[in-house]
């Protein structure tokens, strides 16, 4: 399998490294498979959430209208989408070896942290309102679905921080570049999952 065009845009490993390419192909493909497995995990939690979003599942406790804020959801959505875009810019900077790489990564990290901050604020507010997971089946599902995504974002932020260190220490070695490429898949993937979250949980709940 020899291919001329680099298979993964956002990566520039040079043409004379067939072995690095093969290794990278394996890693990228494996990571895709992992993401798809993760997708199924999210799908299961989504389905559970959907099946508990009804009066029986809410067991006379709070309903979406009582606890969600459309404004906050919109802000989180905007921030995460923007961070996807800035990661795209980082990928371009990586590909064309531009010095702006680290800056874009740092911006993405800050946006990720801002997203987490907002989400945390919402969750704290919900606890204050008594919308705790122990209250009903529906709230249990909410408290697994949204924080599960949040945990993924947190892991992404940690990974970003580590990569910032590695870029600084090691420069753009093959290993560092392929890791950044995988991180970008992860980050964009989380944004796709978030489409599900804001559509099903927030918009679906408030419509």
């Amino acid at each position: 399998m020899t291919q001329d065009a680099p298979r993964h845009p956002g990566l520039n490993l040079g043409r004379h490294h067939p072995e690095a390419h093969a290794e990278n192909e394996k890693l990228m493909f494996g990571f895709w498979v992992f993401l798809m497995s993760d997708l199924i995990l999210f799908g299961i939690v989504f389905a559970t959430y959907a099946s508990l979003t009804n009066p029986m599942g809410q067991a006379g406790g709070p309903t979406p209208r009582d606890v969600f804020s459309l404004t906050s959801a919109a802000m989180q959505t905007a921030i995460l989408l923007l961070s996807s875009f800035t990661f795209g810019l980082a990928s371009l900077a990586l590909k064309y070896r531009q010095p702006s790489l680290r800056a874009w990564l740092a911006v993405t990290l800050l946006l990720g942290l801002a997203f987490l901050g907002l989400e945390l604020r919402d969750l704290v507010q919900m606890v204050a309102d008594g919308a705790v997971p122990q209250r009903s089946g529906w709230l249990s599902a909410f408290w697994v679905l949204v924080p599960l995504h949040g945990l993924h974002v947190a892991a992404g932020c940690l990974w970003l921080a580590v990569m910032l260190v590695q870029v600084t220490l090691f420069g753009l070695t093959t290993q560092v570049s392929t890791r950044l490429a995988r991180l970008s898949l992860f980050w964009h993937f989380l944004d796709v999952v978030w489409i599900g979250v804001f559509s099903v949980v927030y918009l679906g709940g408030l419509a």
Partner: peptide, 14 residues
């Protein structure tokens, strides 16, 4: 562990 209600017979579990 945390008294959630996914599969319990009360409070909306299934």
């Amino acid at each position: 562990y945390l008294d959630f209600h996914f599969f319990t017979s009360d409070l909306g579990g299934n």
